[in-house]
């Protein structure tokens, strides 16, 4: 029972195939801990983004991608309920910052509501904008320019705006697909520190190419190789004493 409470998402036998003859994610089963950061590592093309995008059903936007298995969040299978409901509960932050170019900063934060057709009262809107921007540490930087377009911000600020946009809907889980790979080291550090704080509010899965980043911020790590989940466990354990030789050779820089 305790185990279930500490798990936000159970991944059971998840397979994703872009073409019928090859599994890009092959029979992955693991648990994602609640209020922690889980890092998915692995070399390019190992299926880490594919796995991540299966969780909020992004693969359904494209034709011919097959997803099977179970994704249990609070006992409910994400693959069996309405995709729009899934995406409201599971937020996503992309590799490149992508605030909506025609919307102001405030409207970007509230985009989740307007895109879901939810009308909010003015006081409610203000408090959601303020709270969301505060939780990504952007409030003091932009509070006087909330009506300016989001694309005027720097890359790092834009990415934090995108995190605020995802947080505004109060999701249970946030998926991040290499959120710092397009940013400079200072902006990267800001976002890493932010994620460490945010994990108290929300569970986070982050795909990263950067082993150091996984080591710095995550509590649990998954190592994928050629579509398989090779190893998953506490980050500390994995970096100090990896069980599989493929993990060992990846971490020591021999593959990938």
């Amino acid at each position: 029972m305790e185990n279930i409470n500490n798990t936000i998402l159970e991944i059971r036998d998840l397979c994703v195939a872009y073409t019928a003859d090859k599994l890009s994610v092959s029979h992955v089963s693991t648990d994602i801990p609640r209020n922690q950061i889980t890092a998915i590592m692995g070399p390019s093309g190992c299926g880490k983004s594919t796995l991540l995008r299966a969780i909020n059903r992004m693969h359904e936007l494209y034709r011919g991608i097959q997803v099977s298995g179970e994704l249990l969040i609070d006992g409910q299978d994400l693959l069996k309920i309405n995709a729009m409901r899934v995406r409201r509960e599971v937020g996503m932050v992309f590799q490149r910052p992508n605030p909506f170019p025609t919307m102001s900063i405030a409207d970007n934060v509230l985009a989740g509501y307007s895109l879901n057709g939810i009308r909010l009262e003015k006081s409610m809107r203000q408090s959601i904008v303020e709270q969301s921007l505060k939780s990504v540490g952007l409030w003091n930087e932009v509070k006087d320019s909330l009506t300016k377009r989001g694309t005027f911000l720097s890359g790092g600020q834009q990415q934090r705006l995108c995190i605020a946009r995802a947080l505004a809907l109060k999701p249970k889980l946030i998926l991040m697909d290499e959120p710092t790979s397009a940013l400079d080291p200072i902006a990267t550090t800001t976002i890493e520190n932010l994620l460490v704080e945010l994990k108290n509010e929300v569970s986070i899965i982050i795909v990263t190419h950067n082993m150091g980043q996984a080591k710095r911020i995550s509590q649990k790590s998954l190592f994928m190789y050629l579509g398989e989940l090779v190893e998953g466990g506490s980050t500390e354990q994995m970096f100090s004493d990896p069980a599989d030789r493929r993990t060992k050779s990846y971490l020591s820089g021999n593959i990938g």
């Binding site: 909020n56 992004m58 936007l61 729009m84 409901r85 899934v86 995406r87 409201r88 937020g91 996503m92 992309f94 992508n98 909506f100 985009a111 989740g112 895109l115 879901n116 995108c162 946009r165 995802a166 809907l169």
Partner: peptide
């Protein structure tokens, strides 16, 4: 993708 990922 960002708009749809927000449940739109």
């Amino acid at each position: 993708e960002a708009a749809l990922a927000l449940g739109g």
